[in-house]
Structure formats: structure tokens, C-alpha cells
């Protein structure tokens, strides 16, 4: 092989391909369906594992028990955040977006979601609330929450 390596890029051959992964059915499972139904009704679910609360709800707890589905009503706060300015290819976004882990004071985890706030106004501990899509547009996905927005004072 060493004798055959090309030293001019124009001599290097490559063949374009494609990974056929466009179609797949994801099974949400019984817990996933309950979480989806709750979202359509404007509710966000967590899971109680012993005396700990985890957000979002999943089928299994970290301790391998099944846990108990519970609604999380807030109050919601930004637990960590980032601001995205560019995609992985270095293309600048038209407008930076704020992504946050939004949870509650006592719960573990939270939802990863957009926060509609000026980038210089976001901080850990910022009080926020979910803004749901109109009921007829909801599909049982996390995008049923359009974004979180800061709680207005007064």
C-alpha cells in the first residue's frame, strides 16, 4: 500500500454515500404516552423516586425502581444556561438563542429548553414560566412548550 499512496489531492478518489436513517418509528412506551398526554393538557411531569423528584419523568429511576409520575407545577428557575451563537459548521445564527436547564429548587434535573430572554439578562436562578402552544397545536412533544419566559414582576 505504501507505494500506492497518492501525493496529489487531485489524484485522491472518494465516493459519496448516504446513511439510510430517515425513517424510524419511536415507541414512547406507557410512561412516555402519559407524559405526552399531560403535555397536551399543559402539564409537565416529573417522577418521584423515593423522596427525590426528577424532571422530566422517565420510566425508570436512577435506583432502578419505577417511581411515581407527578405533575411539576414550579416555581421554575434557570438552573444552568448557555447561549448559542454559531452552529457546528461555524455558521452564525441570525440571532443568538438561550438554552437553559429549567427546573425547580428541590428537584433533580429539569427541562432543556429555550428561554425567550435577551442573552445579557439570563442568569442562574432566573424565575421563568412555560409558554404552551395553543391547545389545538399540541402534539404531545416537548415542543408543546414553545419556550420559557421570565416571570414578570408585580
Amino acid at each position: 500500500m505504501s507505494l500506492w499512496k497518492k501525493s496529489r489531492v487531485s489524484d485522491v478518489v472518494h465516493v459519496e454515500g448516504r446513511m439510510e436513517t430517515e425513517r424510524y418509528i419511536y415507541t414512547p412506551g406507557p410512561v412516555g404516552v402519559k407524559v405526552a398526554e399531560a403535555l397536551m393538557e399543559g402539564r409537565i411531569m416529573g417522577v418521584k423516586c423515593g423522596n427525590k423528584l426528577y424532571i422530566p419523568a422517565k420510566t425508570y429511576c436512577p435506583d432502578h425502581s419505577e417511581g411515581e409520575l407527578v405533575e411539576v407545577k414550579g416555581p421554575w428557575i434557570v438552573k444552568s444556561y448557555t447561549i448559542i451563537y454559531e452552529d457546528m459548521y461555524g455558521a452564525k445564527l441570525d440571532k443568538p438563542v438561550v438554552i437553559a436547564l429549567v427546573g425547580t429548587e428541590e428537584a433533580h434535573g429539569g427541562l432543556i429548553h429555550y428561554v425567550e430572554v435577551e442573552p445579557d439578562k439570563v442568569k442562574v436562578g432566573l424565575k421563568v414560566e412555560p409558554v404552551f402552544r395553543p391547545k389545538e397545536e399540541r402534539r404531545g412533544l416537548i415542543t408543546d412548550v414553545m419556550f420559557f419566559k421570565p416571570v414578570e414582576h408585580g
Binding site: T82, I84, E86, D87, M88, L93, V97, I99, I112, H113, Y114, L141, I142, T143
Partner: peptide
């Protein structure tokens, strides 16, 4: 489904 514009977020 959130289509976060950079997956390394």
C-alpha cells in the same frame, strides 16, 4: 424535536 442549533449545547 427542539432543533437546538448546536448539538454541543
Amino acid at each position: 424535536t427542539l432543533k437546538i442549533p448546536n448539538p454541543l449545547f
